[in-house]
Amino acid sequence: MFEARLLKSSILKKVLEAIKDLLTQATFDCDDNGIQLQAMDNSHVALVSLLLRADGFDKYRCDRNVTMGMNLGSMTKILKCAGDKDTVTMKAQDNADTVTFVFESPNQEKVSDYEMKLMNLDLEHLGIPETEYSCTIRMPSAEFARMCRDLSQFGESIVISCTKEGVKFSTSGDIGSANIKLAQTASIDKEDEAVIIEMDEPVTLTFACQYLNYFTKATSLSPQVQLSMSADVPLVVEYRIPDIGHIRYYLAPKIEE
């Protein structure tokens, strides 16, 4: 028996919003520790890694490991049926071929349940080693979303260059070029609004705008975003979801031919 209850359905709605442009289907792996999802987009350029810890749920029970392959389009349709203030409970029997979503209004006057067929997905998993990155940049997630949106008007790629002076985001295309430089916040009063740069070695990497814009769909999950970079390895864009876990995106760089 698997059962996971969240007081606010909005978290699950936002998580789905944050992955559904990259993935059409994904496997939710549930065990004692919580719910995990790892999936690449069709082109294998980007990967989503989601963790929702058991202790972040209001109720969590998982007697046996459960693997639930879900069509994310169908799941999105179902979650649209939940009010933002509804509680949501996901339930599945052991070895079941369906999952049930139960939505309850705050006063318990409306209770709805939606059963969805599960899929048998045979998806590739990547083994991602623990990595020490040369640069980590933390900044307000809304600022990152704004930059990606602004720069993607000019070109298809963004060059991210991190040095001890700060971090620079650049692009160029038919109409011209654009650069945004961010320096570390001088005095940190409000941590959520700070730009914090840790750099062991300078790194410059190039990434496709389109994917960065997909990642920013997670903006409402977290006030801050962390970018981790090392030379010649994928970028990690992490949004910490308060009290429950994180969503991380990995993006393969563009390289000189």
């Binding site: 350029v45 990547l126 083994g127 496709a208 393969a252 563009k254 390289i255 031919e257």
Partner: peptide, 13 residues
């Protein structure tokens, strides 16, 4: 510039 894929960097399990 050419786009790489993640399988260039990480092994599949």
């Amino acid at each position: 510039m050419s786009q790489t894929t993640l399988t260039k960097f990480y092994n599949t399990r």
